[in-house]
């Protein structure tokens, strides 16, 4: 058996096409970015080699360090608030309720909407003058809480997280749902015969069996948070006063507004390395 499963030729056959595409689209650009990150370069003329100068600057750039903190905060919120919500819905739906299919379909809708739509929608929800949120607060007598959610440093960060968290609940739910559904029905039967309650079944049987899928979800969520860009850029452009800036929005500004291709590439390399290190750590720490 083992000889069949470690057939070198077959392994090559299965993996090489993927590796080839990877070399062209992922590795080569990363290598080129590492090269750029050693340059002082405006992306136009010739760059000058400055070694690790950009990296040294990076770690004393408070705007950059803050953006990293924001992305970690976001990863934390995603993993500990968004994923449990997704898991709850996945379990309820996988457990079989009336309209399972309907709910599963509807919960996924925000994921398929384009960022432009989600961005426009939430900027209307948050709008200080006529936004739904402030209108609602005033209607229930909490008018004093109404504020310019995206325009204030103290609320902008959390206000820009919420739409992303909300949008991707359905994404993780679908992964977890198919994970839960792929658990053999026999196991549930057995649990039922033993008289286990639904909650007990979930914690003792379903969730442990879903570990590989949950691990994937956490990994997606972690990496997704560390390189989040789209919605933050649409909603706040990293403002006001960099209070919602994350590494990738900062990188975009540096490369395309400040013409600092070298420094921007250093941020890009940082993001890749950061994700890689955390993924490996996560993989080593949590064995499934």
């Amino acid at each position: 058996m083992n000889t069949v499963l470690s057939d070198k030729k077959a392994i090559c056959f299965f993996v090489i096409p993927t590796i080839l595409i990877y070399i062209a689209v992922i590795f080569l650009p990363i290598v080129m970015s590492i090269n750029y990150s050693m340059l002082k370069w405006d992306g136009i003329g010739k760059g000058t080699f400055i070694g690790f100068g950009n990296y040294i600057e990076l770690f004393s750039d408070s705007r950059f360090l803050n953006s990293v903190v924001h992305s970690f905060l976001f990863a934390f919120v995603s993993i500990f608030i968004q994923l449990p919500i997704s898991l709850l819905f996945a379990l309820i739906l996988a457990n079989g309720v009336k309209g399972e299919k309907f709910f599963r379909t509807v919960y996924f809708i925000p994921v398929i909407m384009s960022t432009v739509v989600i961005g426009q929608l939430w900027s209307k929800i948050y709008n200080a003058d006529y936004g739904l949120l402030n209108t609602f607060l005033k209607a229930i007598g909490l008018g004093s809480l109404a504020r310019d959610w995206l325009g204030r440093e103290d609320t902008a960060l959390i206000a820009s997280f919420i739409p992303i968290l909300w949008q991707y609940v359905g994404y993780h739910m679908l992964i977890m749902y198919s994970g839960a559904k792929s658990i053999s029905a026999d196991i549930y039967e057995a649990a039922k015969i033993d008289g286990a309650s639904a909650i007990k079944t979930a914690f003792k049987i379903t969730i442990p069996l879903m570990k590989p899928v949950l691990k994937v979800s956490v990994m997606f969520s972690l990496i997704g948070s560390l390189k989040v860009f789209d919605l933050i850029y649409v909603l706040t452009k990293g403002g006001p006063f960099f209070s919602t800036e994350v590494p990738s929005t900062y990188m975009y500004t540096i490369i395309f507004d400040s013409y600092r291709y070298g420094y921007g590439s250093a941020i890009a390399v940082f993001i890749v390395v950061e994700c890689l290190v955390l993924t490996v750590l996560f993989d080593k720490l949590i064995k499934v």
């Binding site: 900027s123 709008n127 200080a128 003058d129 310019d148 959610w149 325009g151 902008a156 706040t236």
Partner: peptide, 8 residues
């Protein structure tokens, strides 16, 4: 306007 920092 008070909401200038969130207005595009």
């Amino acid at each position: 306007n008070e909401n200038m920092f969130s207005m595009s």
